[in-house]
Amino acid sequence: MAHQKPAPRPINRRQFLGETAQMLAASSLIAMGLMGYGKHSHALPATALRPPGALPEEDFLGACIRCGLCVRSCPYNTLKLAQVGDDIATGTPYFIARDVPCEMCEDIPCIPACPTHALNHDLKKIDQAKMGLAQITDQSACIAFLGLRCEVCYNVCPVRGKAITLERQHNARSGKHALFIPVLHFDACTGCGKCEEACILEEAAIKVLPIALAKGKMQAHYKVGWQEKQQAGQALVTPDVEHQFNLPSGKRYDYYGEGLVDTPEEIAPPFANNPLDSLNQKQEP
């Protein structure tokens, strides 16, 4: 006798509709709860930085499958996985710059370890990473602004002299000394956090902030004239033609608010154009 597979349990229309309605109700409740919880966990705390090459947070949360392979591949134990109860989406990798910053390995082992593209596999040079953006967040605490020579952040920076430069300024307080002010440059800063870790203060005055928080953005229409000029090889606007006036004789137009003013009668200059003439001129008695 050929055995059959069991027939599926018969179900009538009333049961089907009832069950469907129940499930839809329950599903929408769960969906509401999860969406609410999800929204809360989408707000990454500003101290938590993603590994190098991490997609923008919104995409990252869809691409990261929370496997922890990046954490395992990190030779410096920089990366951690968020635990339940942290303000970071459960199971996603992060690091806190002040505790353990990114050491910027040249081969970036965390990126090939990632089985998805949550960490962008196209990033090959760690210098091009953008994990965050360092900022002097408190000038009143940074001792460089007091006129002291600290420069620790400048010296620990892995892209030394590019991401942080020291700008010499006059020390107006003493009147005779210089200030060596650390200035951050976004194009070179990778957000590794070495500066924040090394800051000598009790609470760091230089902090690595997430790009989304730290980075400003010009309106799309805004053009920087001199850059455009350099690109085009010439000015993009028609150069101003010098304005011509037909003024009454003895008058001139003052551009700085005086308007029409009398021109004093022209007095012959005491010296001729040719200096020899002046020298040859006879002295008046």
């Binding site: 999860l34 969406m35 919880y37 999800g38 966990s41 989408h42 919104e58 995409d59 949360l61 869809g62 990261c64 499958i65 929370r66 922890g68 954490v71 951690k80 996985l81 635990q83 339940v84 109860g85 942290d86 989406a89 459960t90 199971g91």
Partner: peptide, 24 residues
Amino acid sequence: SGSLLWELVNPVSMLHRGLLFGLG
């Protein structure tokens, strides 16, 4: 949502990952 919402609460992956990386 464009994100793995379920993985925020999934007890299965949570427990296994937690035993290895910390469960909080």
